[in-house]
Nucleic acid binder design. Structure first.
Lengths: 202, 202
DNA sequence: AGCAAAATGGCACTCGGTGTCAAAAAGAAT
DNA sequence: ATTCTTTTTGACACCGAGTGCCATTTTGCT
């Protein structure tokens, strides 16, 4: 290496990797917007990104994965946020992590909307999304359990709470997206948590 | 028609329809058990059922549908059960319907176990199953809303409850299946509802 | 420049899913 | 039983997703 160290911490290879990945995502979403998910073949997507079909499949194992490109990263990020802080109850930890995630959604508004449209258009993508939500739910359950001793009763309670929270938040995000993502998602989330805190029976 | 009226309320055509449908399901599950879902092609399944590939696809629009053959019927049945009875609270209606559904699962023990194994083997089938659960959830939410006036607050509460119940029951069924479906699912369900009734905060 | 490792892309193949259409089976009518 | 109509069937051809294979190119390093 001579003196190419300007802003590149990551080599040319990694940079290209990222660029092509991004190109694929951009191409995919452009085509989805133009003609819909079903009518956009991997051939087209790859071509628009300037890659071969075969190579495109090396970046994304399936066409579906192209719809949820940052799923793994989001999940990891969320789990990192679920680490409890000093003097925080489990519920507070979960709320903080969820609201932070909500903030990210808000910052990613445009793509979230596009993603929402795509997902609504193909029923089985709804299933994929639910599976993703399910992973978040599992993480939340885990966070609740971290605070308690492992008993069947405690586990069930943690599960019910995690499921209720996930369900309520799913509804909240849906409301937000259906309204064009024009309101404040974090505020909506706060309200939802307030409702949950206020109680279930009534 | 001469005198073939023995037990046939439905004509030969419908009878054959049902037979072939059943043959396909049986063939599919036999092959899934033998070699797994992925390794069982529609060609094989159709052949074992004594049908052509093309015809098999007329009975089941996709290979996935073959995994959840009675989904539509179950959903309809469940919704029928969700009609409130005299002097019953919404919660009671929901519990009754869910427990009845649980009883059906129990009577269908063998297939439920097989289905569970297949679903666990292919991640995206989990998504499909979740989507099915989601339909049940929507029905439950609807049942809760039927008892109240339509306000955003009421809807959110109904949604949270429906989601919590669905989540808790999913966990319950999972527990049951993981234990080989050898225990009493209805009893487990009753316990889960008791927990839910007892309260959320604590 | 030169070399090893990794990424690329072309090819051929499998499998899920669909449109089309001629042949076969079912039901109705005589 | 025979004919006529309506469904159902199954063969064929086709598309797109996804994969294994391998020759070629690109990249990182010396």
């Amino acid at each position: 290496m001579t003196s190419t160290a300007t802003t590149d911490d990551l080599g040319l290879r990694d940079r290209n990797n990222r660029e092509r990945r991004d190109a694929l995502i951009a191409a995919a979403y452009a085509l989805f917007a133009e003609r819909g998910f079903a009518a956009s073949s991997m051939d087209d997507i790859a071509a628009r990104a300037g890659l071969s079909r075969r190579t495109a499949f090396r970046y994304f194992a399936s066409k579906d994965d192209l719809v949820f490109p940052e799923q793994a990263a989001r999940q990891a990020q969320f789990e990192a946020l679920l680490v409890p802080r000093e003097g925080e109850s489990a519920f507070e930890t979960v709320r903080r992590a969820c609201l932070a995630l909500g903030r990210h959604y808000q910052d990613d508004r445009e793509r979230q909307l596009a993603q929402f449209r795509v997902i609504q258009s193909e029923p089985w993508l709804v299933g994929r999304e639910l599976a993703i939500d399910r992973a978040l739910e599992a993480a939340i359950e885990h966070a609740f359990m971290a605070a308690e001793r492992e008993t069947p009763r405690a586990r069930r309670r943690a599960r019910v709470r995690a499921s209720a929270i996930t369900g309520a938040l799913r509804a909240t995000v849906r409301e937000w997206l259906e309204g064009g993502a024009s309101t404040d998602l974090v505020r909506l989330g706060r309200e939802t948590f307030a409702e949950l805190e206020a109680g279930f029976a009534g």
